[in-house]
């Protein structure tokens, strides 16, 4: 047990929590935006995967990690745009479209990887670039805080900025107001001339944009290469984080951190003599427990409300 504490109560562990939270957080913000517009983006996992590969490929061919990042984000937005086109234009069910995107991404990325590198497992032979890590002056010299918060990948900092941007966008801008109105009462939005389809398009594109950032981080920050199915369910965890966070920006961020912590713990515990397979399930078990806690608290709240109403009448 003491060895467990030795693992957790270290600055390295806290640092790694932020490190592994980044991709989940990006994707969860994507899930948040589309969900608030009343359209659930099931394709996040696939979008991240495509973005991760695109980042590697573009950076390898251009020699610039920044151009690679742009490529990744563009690819993510594009895939999300395709999903939006099928869902909103042709009225395919979003779940079907999302599943198609995910399956296409899983197979398609391996196919393209093989075409370009001759390898079906990873992109080791591609000279891809990595986005830089940033030491924050002053902060880096503060004990405890410095080693936790300084020296992260530039995208980790961007993910934190993104939280504020999304919060502000949803709460304060006309677009945010329209996104929320469309998600809550599309007829009301329609009746005052807000185009529901247009708002949902925008929301899905933004959702793809953020998932794209998450994908880029996977292959150009978290790791320095692309490996087959490297997102490993983070897109799904992000959807869970969003719903457990009750579709609020703050809640989504906190649950993303919780899942990140579970992920980091799984990594850290690998030094102990616990079967790696068991530890590997930790983030997923957390997801399930989290959703159960959420469901129970919600139904209790509902029951209380019903009882209050009954008393009144």
């Amino acid at each position: 047990m003491s060895s467990l504490f030795n693992v957790i109560f270290t600055t390295e562990f806290a640092f790694s929590v932020l490190r592994v939270t980044t991709p989940i957080l990006f994707a969860a913000l994507g899930a948040l935006i589309s969900n608030r517009a009343g359209i659930i983006n099931i394709g996040l996992e696939g979008i991240m995967l495509v973005a991760a590969l695109s980042g590697v490929v573009v950076s390898a061919y251009t020699g610039s990690s920044w151009v690679g990042l742009m490529g990744a984000v563009l690819a993510g937005t594009l895939i999300s745009g395709i999903l939006a086109f099928f869902t909103l234009h042709f009225k395919t069910h979003i779940i079907l479209g999302g599943v198609a995107i995910n399956m296409f991404a899983s197979g398609g990325t391996v196919f393209i990887l093989y075409l370009l590198s001759g390898d079906k497992g990873s992109s080791t032979s591609l000279p891809s670039k990595v986005l830089p890590s940033v030491d924050i002056p002053l902060l880096k010299d503060i004990p405890v805080l410095g080693p936790i918060f300084s020296g992260h990948n530039v995208l980790t900092y961007m993910s934190i900025i993104a939280v504020f941007v999304v919060y502000y966008m949803l709460k304060r801008t006309p677009l945010g107001l329209r996104i929320r109105s469309v998600g809550e009462n599309p007829q009301a939005a329609q009746s005052v001339g807000v185009s529901v389809v247009k708002v949902q398009y925008t929301a899905l594109l933004l959702s793809g944009f953020f998932a794209g950032l998450g994908g880029a981080y996977m292959s150009m920050g978290y790791l320095s290469l692309f490996t087959r199915d490297m997102t490993a369910g983070r897109g799904w965890i992000a959807i869970a984080a969003e719903s457990m966070g009750r579709s609020t920006t703050v809640g989504t961020t906190l649950t993303s951190l919780l899942f990140g912590a579970a992920d980091a713990l799984a990594n850290a515990l690998q030094v102990l003599k616990i079967p790696a397979e068991l530890i590997g399930t930790l983030p997923y078990v957390t997801t399930v427990i989290g959703l159960i806690v959420y469901a129970v608290s919600e139904s209790r709240k509902r029951n209380r409300k019903l009882k209050r109403l009954e008393k009144k009448s």
């Binding site: 109105s181 009462n185 939005a189 005052v192």
Partner: peptide
């Protein structure tokens, strides 16, 4: 049926 967004 009112065309209002309840949480707004």
């Amino acid at each position: 049926h009112f065309m209002l967004v309840p949480s707004f």
